[in-house]
Write a protein that binds this DNA or RNA. Structure first.
Lengths: 195, 195
DNA sequence: CACGTTCCGGACCGTTTGGTCAAGAACGCG
DNA sequence: CGCGTTCTTGACCAAACGGTCCGGAACGTG
């Protein structure tokens, strides 16, 4: 009973995510969020509490999507080695130069808040642990499928790949040329993902 | 002539740097900066213009110090390979866990502002280009010294090392365990810095 | 159709923000 | 010592901030 909500919670979270993603947590005002979501102040506070809680909700959903995405990518695919190589071969200009240079929303948020906000740190830690596990599993599978040397330590290589991927994401934001980025990806494939 | 300044500009820039470093650009108020530097509002504005200009000055000095530091480290040392290995072997808890988890000030600033502030982007690009060049030179020297395979592409490996180093810096902030971080460094040495 | 309940819009609040300004203090110079 | 110049201090400002609250609108239910 009572008056039903006029908005779709998922859509609102999407809009808020875009806004936080664009400018970061501190530089995003409630006014920005109201304009982006189309909601009034009362609705926003009534539905999500306050700015910080809304942010955590947005960040959590993003983190889950990301982890699930990586997990699915790794689970699918005929050969694990192809999936792994794909992570470092994909064209760095898929989404256009602007959108891409925003980087990973979770990485941005961690950089801005991890030292002060334990909940953000926890979210980041859990998510990157999950991604690390995915990479590790994929490496192990690639070894089992004969596409990587039998003496490969899956955890070690998985972690190294995670570091490279994060490094790539970061360098993207520094306007490193696509050629240079591609070269790093290619070098990763050549040097670490060969049998 | 005129009244002489009561403060040392370098010390003020240091204090301001610490403050920006701790909380980022947007979350640092002029009030914080006044308390940290001990200067009154008028002095700060009189000497540096406004918040943004002060920040750029602070960031520029940090970037130069960083680039010079890497450059010097690479220039010195008997064998280039030892310098390179040193970058990935050094104990990740040198400065204590808190200070370290702040990460690189330039990287943090790029993440927060690079999409919106061309001057920050430019500073980041120039600095990381310089670091990349340092790595590349070190790799070339290591090849010449017979510590890396003769067919090594110095630019390619230099860039890859840069990506790994940035990835490590980032993962540090996500509270990845020191063991895991050390393992990544060790893996880098084992897999990429062996003859 | 009346009622209870929930939600919406936006006026409103105290605080904090980045930035200005004027009055006076501290020098170097003549 | 008096003058011009520069620096310091802190009061002050308009705007923006996050957050609260209330009158009315929009339902489900009886």
């Amino acid at each position: 009973m009572g008056r039903p909500r006029k908005f779709d919670e998922e859509q609102v979270l999407r809009a808020a995510r875009d806004e936080f993603w664009k400018n970061g947590y501190a530089a995003t005002s409630m006014d920005d969020l109201m304009k982006a979501t189309g909601l009034g102040k009362g609705s926003l506070y009534g539905a999500f509490g306050d700015k910080h809680q809304l942010f955590l909700k947005v960040l959590g959903s993003y983190a889950h999507e990301t982890a699930d995405g990586v997990c699915d990518a790794v689970a699918g695919g005929e050969r694990a080695i192809d999936v792994l190589r794909g992570f470092f071969t994909s064209e760095p200009s898929d989404d256009g130069p602007v959108a891409l240079r925003r980087g990973c929303f979770l990485a941005n948020s961690s950089t801005e808040l991890a030292t002060r906000d334990p909940e953000v740190t926890g979210c980041a830690r859990a998510t990157y642990q999950a991604v690390e596990d995915c990479f590790t599993n994929a490496v192990a599978r690639a070894v089992a499928e004969g596409d990587l040397p039998a003496d490969t330590n899956p955890r070690e290589l998985g972690r190294l790949l995670l570091a490279i991927q994060q490094g790539l994401q970061f360098l993207l934001k520094t306007e490193m040329t696509p050629e240079a980025l591609r070269e790093i990806g290619a070098a990763t494939v050549d040097r670490l993902l060969k049998s």
